[in-house]
Nucleic acid binder design. Sequence first.
DNA 1: CGCCTAATAT
DNA 2: TATATTAGGC
Length: 328
Amino acid sequence: MGEHGGGGGGGGGGDGVSLAGGDGRGRVMEWLVGLPSDEELTPLSQSLIPPELASAFSITPEPPRTILDVHRASQDSVALLRRQISSSSSSSPLKGFPSFAAAAEAEDPTVIEGDESAAKDGSGESSRKTRHLEAVEEADSAFRTENSNDESSARTHKRPRLVWTPQLHKRFVDVVAHLGIRNAVPKTIMQLMNVEGLTRENVASHLQKYRLYLKRMQGVSIEGPSSSDLLFASSPVPPSLQEASVPVPIPYAPPPALIPMPVIGMAHHGHGAPMAMVPLNGQQSGGAYRGYEAHHPYAMFGERPKDWPRGNNFASMVPYPHVSPRSK
DNA sequence: CGCCTAATAT
DNA sequence: TATATTAGGC
């Protein structure tokens, strides 16, 4: 049925060989040129639902961050690439890898030592922008909880547990949605997510849980969230995307924010749990990889349950109408 | 062999 | 609990 169409568009940089050359930057430029222009890209904040509907559901359009954010992310990416190039230009190209991983660990709040893990405290809103640094620092801190020292030889030593932050999970869901359940396999998902540092195992594990979650929901969508399953949808999977069979040539793969689809047609009464949708997470981490940062950017219109703090990552998962995993 | 999924371990 | 790791099947 189809091979994965290779990247097209010089995206992934599979042949990063020439990166080491003096034209490293040229490469990057080339890559940039290949990207769609601002106007071409679907605005992250684009609403796929009618304004009235949004209004009715108290959905905030998310006006502020849009192209700007993307720009910033792009610059970030470029900067990172430059750094890598610079670093590795002296050595053999292959040796550039370690720095890559190192940078990742330094900058990825997602990856922290197991144990108590991430911060709790749902202070919520408060300042949003400036949080970046703090979040990073905090994460860094958490990261060193126990695993201090060690040279970070990236190889031969286990990475710390991956924490599926909402943002990261969002990306995951987006990609899965984009692929369609049928093609959503660990390797592909991992590649499309384009999150450095993320391993196939990570994705596989998460995917497993995700599927489990979907199943659960299918059986008895909502009955009585005993107190273990909070229901809100964050990234519903548009039916149209479920059938997607193309490999997705996207250069750096930023699927525009998926729009939550309120299920307004539900005339059936009886179930007391309204499928809340529209997470309004915002924080659409513009960039491609590393699309995660803070820990609890949750902002819902209602009020949040008291026992939210601890890993409720899957709260944002959404069931498909009916899917056959792996059936042709 | 690589990959995926289910089961189990930490 | 959330992830990681292992084991088995394709």
